[in-house]
Amino acid sequence: MLIIAGRSFRSRLFGGTGKFSSPAVMKEALDASGCEMVTVALRRVDLADPADDIMSVLDRERYLFLPNTSGARDAGEAVRLAHLARASGGGEWLKLEVTPDPRTLLPDPIETLKATEILVKEGFHVLPYMNADPILALRLQDVGAAAVMPLGSPIGTNQGVLTKAMIEIIIDQAQVPVVVDAGLGAPSHAALAMEMGADAVLVNTAIAVAGDPVRMARAFAMAVEAGRAAYESGLGMVSKDAAASSPEDGLGFLR
């Protein structure tokens, strides 16, 4: 069972709530995905249409909200958003995103580390979104991050796990759960991340913009489950040259 900050999760698929065509489609897709944690963003109420509260369709008993700090460009803004999230009833959970570059939305490692340190001290369960940098993962872990969320590829690009080699190191070294976030465009990408030993994956765009988001949500759920089962079962390795015993040419010196 996956445990983050003392809370256990049956599903290793985390959902996003952005980019859906309607609140109804979002709800149906998330219900089909089986996920228990969903990310949400914080924005000003649209005063021209104040009734447009898409989050009200989601059952707060069923879904743990993971508020993000999207839009924050530095640690200070992220901390402010975190405080607003907590006041909004987000509890202590926080997906920390600090993305100064509006084009790529790649996370700023320095500001992310700073903000994590501050927010952990304030009692938040911080899950920082980060580039797939193994040392950064360890530094974030050292200052108390509840999990780390390395990106598979730039957000929204659907390119899959381009950072495979780095994420493998992160998984190998981390003591906190590793949640692969961003860039997972197909169920096979999610399955790959899970086979590698990721503790969970977060998928938003690929489900929200699919032709049939509900079926795609189900497909991701199955892929995550399959990948995890494969990881736990111990994958059979591709056997290249070790199938038979070979001569000990180099070991003639042994007595």
């Binding site: 952005g18 949400v40 000003r44 109420v45 957000i155």
Partner: peptide, 10 residues
């Protein structure tokens, strides 16, 4: 005054 609420996001 800022009125803020949760909206959809990833």
């Amino acid at each position: 005054v800022e009125l803020i609420r949760f909206v959809g996001g990833g």
